[in-house]
């Protein structure tokens, strides 16, 4: 069952990202991402991380991508922009990313025995997650909250229409 779910979700994920790449319409792009990120959430829950899975679906799929949608609507580019015409940049980037992928794969192959068997320890417990978040990671947590406030204020200041304009 788990294997089936994994392959299903992985397939959805990859196909929707391919759709994202191929579609010219920005709205479709964003919707493809919603699907991909939701499937990603499913993958997270398969990995014993229910809390992160829920956060992924609510914040990523629900909030961030919707933010993108709003901006797309505000900018209102009537017809989509066709993909890159400058071919050599594209080929070069694809080449380099394949090299990168090969490098990753090589490094993975070294650690493969280690990654084959999951740890037996129970890690999915949201209580434990909350505990460690508010003890060991309390300072990063607080700093992140400051970052969020700064980002919100900054975004408003940047995007606000000035009176004189």
């Amino acid at each position: 069952m788990a294997q089936f779910l994994f392959f299903l979700l992985a397939l959805i994920c990859v196909i929707s990202i391919l759709g994202f790449i191929l579609s010219k319409n920005q709205i479709y792009n964003a919707l493809c991402l919603v699907v991909a990120f939701t499937a990603m959430g499913g993958l997270f829950s398969l990995l014993d991380a229910p809390f992160v899975a829920v956060v992924q679906i609510i914040i990523y799929a629900g909030a961030i991508v919707v933010l993108f949608l709003f901006v797309i609507m505000m900018i209102d580019v009537r017809k989509g922009i066709p993909p890159e015409k400058n071919r050599w940049t594209l080929y070069l980037s694809v080449g380099i990313s394949l090299v990168l992928a090969a490098e990753f794969a090589f490094s993975l192959s070294k650690a493969i025995c280690f990654l084959k068997t999951p740890a037996t320890k129970e890690i999915g417990n949201p209580t434990a997650l909350g505990h460690i978040l508010f003890t060991k990671y309390i300072y990063p947590f607080e700093i992140t909250s400051v970052l969020i406030v700064t980002a919100i204020v900054g975004a408003i200041v940047l995007a606000k229409k000035r009176e004189e304009e």
Binding site: C13, V14, T89, A101
Partner: peptide
């Protein structure tokens, strides 16, 4: 899988021509 998605992201970044995408 994450490796595949990452490489797809890179390729998407270079294919797309508008800032939002």
């Amino acid at each position: 899988l994450s490796l595949i998605i990452f490489v797809l992201g890179i390729i998407a970044f270079f294919i797309k021509r508008d800032l939002i995408t």
